[in-house]
Structure formats: structure tokens, C-alpha cells
Amino acid sequence: MTALIQARGLRKSFGTTDALRGIDLDIQRGEVVAVMGPSGSGKSSLLHCLAGVLLPDSGTVSVGGTVITALSEARRSALRLKEFGFVFQFGQLLPDLTAIDNVTIPLLLGGMKRRQALTAARGWLDRLGLEVAADQLPGELSGGEAQRVAIARALVTQPSVLFADEPTGSLDSLAAENVLTAMLELVRKAGTTLVMITHDPRTAAYADREIIVRDGQLAATDRVGIK
């Protein structure tokens, strides 16, 4: 089976700092992968390259057979809209929009009618236990609620890959666990591939496997071809 995401020879530097120093990586469809590693090891750069947010200096990333590193920014934007979802540690909701409006944005960007988008968004909020919070502003939500809204927004377009960067990094253990369980349940049910940066082993334990980035390279055990 060909891997959904294939990265080969990724290199990226910022000024004199080498963030990525030759990374080869395969991620299978439906797989849940935790990306771990010390701060500054290049985890985020790797995630950004895989998602087509950053272009590597050299190397290629292909997703479902499309070499995204060769696409124009406009095409990559379209791809992000259709195929990818993103969840960050915090502060990713548009502060002026209610929870439900936040969730509709990707659908509206995709050209859906507002009424339909609202219905779909409400469905996702319900699935994440946010019925009551739908009409609240992000500033009025708790950290855990805000993260669940973010997850709803990321999944509302039914992307094939969900990228998460420390999705529970700013939550306490219980809230983190609730958010993770909810996210994993939805991801597993939909067969979405999840690539999740975390420094927390208990979060990583929800993944099918973990890859460890150290000094811009994968730890030996994670290299392609080594089992």
C-alpha cells in the first residue's frame, strides 16, 4: 500500500539554523502519528512542510500522489481548504465570530450556502458536546471548549489529513484527555489521518505510532525502512 503522505529528503533552514536536515517519512492513510522531540528540534517545521504551509529548501512532499511542494501557493491554499484541517495550541478562533460562525468559515470558503454551512457546523458542534456554546464568542469559552470548536472547524470539511500542533498543550490533564478522546473518536470513525505534534507522552499514547525528531532528523528507529 502506498503511503498517503510521503516526504523525501526534506531540508529547510532559517538563516543559519538548519531546521530540517534530510527527513524521509511515510504516513499511511488513516494512521494516527504523534510527532515528538525536544523544543527546537524541527517538529513544527516538519509539520508545516507536510501541510504545504512552508516550502522546503529541497526535498518533496506528496499527499495522495500529488507532489504538493511543486504546487503554486493558490493551489496549496485550495488543497489546505479541501484536504487538510488544522488545530493549534490556542488562539486560533476568530475572536469576533461566534463558535458556530467560526466553524462555518471553511465551508463558506468552499462555496457552501450559509444556511447549509450553519446546519453542518451545528452537527459537528453537537458531536463535540458543544450544543450550548454555539452562539458564544471565543472569549467566553473555556480552553477545552475553544479547542473542541477548533477541532470542529478543522473537521467540518471532512479533510483527509488533520494536522494538530500541541492541540492540548494549554489544557489541564482532564480537559486534555476529554478533548483528545473526542478528537480521536471522530478521526478514527472518519478514517482521517492525524499528524499531531506533542511533547506529552500521554497524548502521544493515543497515536498508532510516534516519530521522534531530533536536530532536524528522525530518530533512527523511525527512519523509513527500519522496523
Binding site: 493558490a74 491554499s77 489546505r80 481548504l81 487538510f84 488544522f86 476568530l94 471553511p106 470558503l109
Partner: peptide, 12 residues
């Protein structure tokens, strides 16, 4: 930050 976020969401 917000504008960057919207671009990430796929807004051109």
C-alpha cells in the same frame, strides 16, 4: 495572526 490563520484555512 488572524490573517495568517485565514490563509492557513485556505483563504486566498
Amino acid at each position: 495572526r488572524m490573517l495568517a490563520l485565514l490563509r492557513l484555512l485556505g483563504m486566498n
